[in-house]
Design a protein around this nucleic acid. Structure first.
Lengths: 228, 228
DNA sequence: GGTGGAAGTGGACTGTGGTCCGTTTGAGGT
DNA sequence: ACCTCAAACGGACCACAGTCCACTTCCACC
């Protein structure tokens, strides 16, 4: 089920939508903008159909050959369209991977936006924060190949809808938990500590266990939210 | 996993001679594995000469056209060698950029390894930590183009000598400052909060000032090192 | 039902990263 | 001096990302 609620950059150049989510005021609890970049503009029927075909083809090929071996031409061929179509729709290879990633992010988003406590609404902000890190780490581990492959340009990461949502969500929780300081910066710091690449490095090359990282997250959240 | 896609280069320079930076016990104060990635292995005279020619040519071209417009062929041509030579020496394009980056890291390393207090040895660890962040941010801003361009593969970052040195240095200072918890993880978190890409994003897209980020660093260091 | 034109399509084309392999060169051994 | 061979070299070659533009299809409006 390709929900098609997935935002994607129909316009290759991207250039980001202006000032989007307010720097310090948006409350994701009340507004559910989901992936903020807004719904993709209306696609013509054939374009929408091809978009779905392409995402499915890409997913299928990736499962078979791995993300690094995914070529634009093979995706186009597998979907039965021309190569130009892939580029028009997703801008570039990274854009395709990001679209794929956003598409798979749905479950996690549902869990922390509207799922049951302690991650979803209903639990105290601090509890939600504590629950968020471990869940995020596990999610990223599951999709780490795609996530890492889609990170070719470090700056682009910050424009990915899924990541923007995470940031604003964590920032909101920090605000609710009365964390002091620059909450946006704190949110980035917190999320950086469970970054997919970092987790992969620490568990693979530095032989840390995922439980150690969970513990690290708890410590960090505790320290950042603790009153003076 | 498709067998770690890193197309192991023929002769990647360095490869770290991973001395120590022990998982949890080494003290970088006494051992100076130094980044320098040293001059790696002994190169034949002609190879060494060409290596220098290539780095100079690359630096010159980059100054003129920017890192993104740097092509391997143009570097080879400018240095008066064949394209194969560039690849043999640096493995791939990213390898060349990383080598260039390591090369420019010298001053900063000297400053925190053996410069005057408060960053260099002689000052209390906590002071050194506080001084480190702002200096690092300014250094990265100065070279952000090269730094960002060299980050094509997120995992590779952790193998870059300069970054490994930073990590172990910060971890050492944290240990000396009696920070509790997983110091290696804390070091990554701390450094992540002043990551070049993040700083660029926050200052450029989110209109934060560098002084706000300095403040954020101080708060973070204070919280992470504060006793209970 | 027709029609104008914007949106979408496909595939030839280009530039660059990366590989391969036959040739050359430097340095240690005799 | 000469010999030997691993290391270094160079450039032809290949694959793939990304561009371009002539052509086709949808759909909003008559």
């Amino acid at each position: 089920m390709t929900g098609s609620a997935v935002p994607s950059p129909p316009r290759p150049p991207g250039s980001g939508s202006g000032s989007g989510s307010g720097s310090g005021s948006g409350d994701a609890r009340t507004t559910l903008p989901l992936a903020s970049t807004g719904e993709p503009e209306r696609l013509r029927a054939d374009a929408a159909r091809n978009r779905t075909l392409l995402l499915e083809a890409a997913s299928r090929l990736m499962a078979g050959c791995g993300a690094t071996n995914l070529t634009m031409e093979s995706v186009a061929a597998a979907a039965g369209v021309g190569k130009g179509t892939v580029f028009r729709r997703f801008g570039d290879r990274t854009g395709l991977l990001i679209a794929l990633m956003n598409h798979r992010e749905g479950l996690l988003q549902a869990a922390f936006l509207s799922g049951p406590p302690p991650m979803g609404p209903g639990a105290p902000a601090l509890d939600r924060l504590h629950a968020f890190g471990p869940a995020l780490m596990r999610h990223e581990r599951e999709h780490h190949e795609l996530i890492l492959a889609s990170r070719t340009d470090p700056l682009r990461t910050y424009a990915v809808p899924a990541n923007r949502l995470r940031i604003s969500h964590v920032a909101m929780l920090l605000r609710q938990a009365r964390a002091e300081g620059n909450v946006e910066l704190l949110a980035h710091t917190l999320l950086g500590s469970v970054d997919a690449a970092l987790v992969h490095h620490l568990t693979t090359d530095r032989s840390m266990s995922i439980e150690q990282l969970d513990q690290g997250w708890h410590d960090l959240v505790t320290r950042l939210c603790a009153g003076p």
